[in-house]
Nucleic acid binder design. Structure first.
Lengths: 200, 200
DNA sequence: CGTATCCGGTAATGGCCAGTACCGGTAACG
DNA sequence: CGTTACCGGTACTGGCCATTACCGGATACG
């Protein structure tokens, strides 16, 4: 039920669809900054320049709002179809590192980190959060590495699933626990010093 | 100020020092299970078979209690002096994987994960939590890897600081986000397939 | 011994904040 | 046009705990 029941038959003014995006974006911003517990509905409303009523007219609770925001965040992912294909794994992985994507990934990781405490209790959220976000990054890596294996660039007995987690895991740790930014140097070093050696 | 001011000059019964450990242990257990927000003072009291007053007689707030518990958790670390020394890096790292340590590390990671949302807001906690816990594990790895470099077992230009984070980061991701246990197979694979190739 | 203080319980107190109700104003249905 | 429902604001309500206050026993200091 990501989209609430918007099929109206009644009279009068309709919900303004442009407010939705503003509210969901504000939700992610606040989540990334202060986590689920620190996030107050009023902060989201204020940042979205909306009244609390406007939020509650769309989502029945804070929890539902957060679930939709996180789910939507997971949907704007890299898109497994349009992955780079430069002919080498190193080139592919580095092509994945565009500055906008890095910033976006950083926000995603921060959102998830601020959510970990409720993952255990809330079932659907854990799914959306983990699978849809870091998960997409891992999936992209999996595809790229598998290609390298098929191409003979990487050794045939490599554990693709396992190695696909390498870069996202290390990055998540750097962002969430060390509080550092995700810079290109770090990622390039990860590819050259760790991932590629592991595939030879 | 880890230890409260216990220098009493007044008359009457003293604080029973054996209650402290029970309460701090209970705090860590609850934190690992439900995170900071989900943790209610009453849960801790109940698990420690204590009254709430007994807690508040020792710590002025939930926050202070958690800080001391987490700080103390950081102090029972591997102990950089008694690190294994088997002659090979592989042997050393695997010797570090004792079942009790794995269970303890898993609890630590779960505690930290349930705390991430408050790390941003509370300064000292982030320090205690990150540096003192995963940090100790990273430090142990750093020492072992440096030894391997000195010994000529690993290549001389290896970035020891960087590689020391490999196993702890990957393990933390596995425990905190994937919710899986930290088993020996996973760690051995990490050493053989990732760390050692990166050092050749 | 006498009493100050602790102990494990349990019953207030009080603040924070999700959720609700309304307000004056406005846009979009019939 | 006349409703009806929305919009951004701003109270108000109610529940959940952190924190405090007590209770009827222990206990250890002087």
């Amino acid at each position: 039920m990501p989209e609430n029941d918007r099929t109206r038959t009644t009279r009068g003014r309709q919900l303004d669809p442009t407010r939705d995006a503003a509210i969901l974006d504000a939700t992610l911003d606040v989540l990334a900054e202060v986590g689920y517990t620190g996030m107050k509905i009023e902060m989201v409303a204020e940042r979205a320049k909306a009244g609390k009523g406007t939020l509650y007219r769309r989502w029945p609770s804070k929890e539902e709002l957060v679930i939709e925001a996180v789910t939507r965040m997971g949907q704007r992912d890299v898109g497994a179809e349009q992955l780079p294909d430069t002919g080498t794994l190193r080139g592919d992985i580095i092509a994945l590192i565009r500055p906008e994507l890095m910033e976006e990934q950083s926000q995603k990781v921060r959102v998830i980190a601020g959510l970990t405490s409720m993952l255990a209790s809330h079932e659907g959220l854990a799914e959306s959060a983990n699978n849809a976000n870091i998960g997409a990054w891992i999936t992209a890596n999996r595809v790229l590495i598998q290609r390298a294996v098929d191409r003979g660039e990487a050794k045939a007995d490599a554990d693709v699933d396992f190695l696909a987690r390498l870069i996202p895991s290390m990055s998540a740790h750097r962002i969430a626990l060390e509080g550092k930014a995700l810079d290109k140097d770090f990622l390039v070093k990860l590819v050259d010093e760790v991932l590629l050696p592991a595939l030879r």
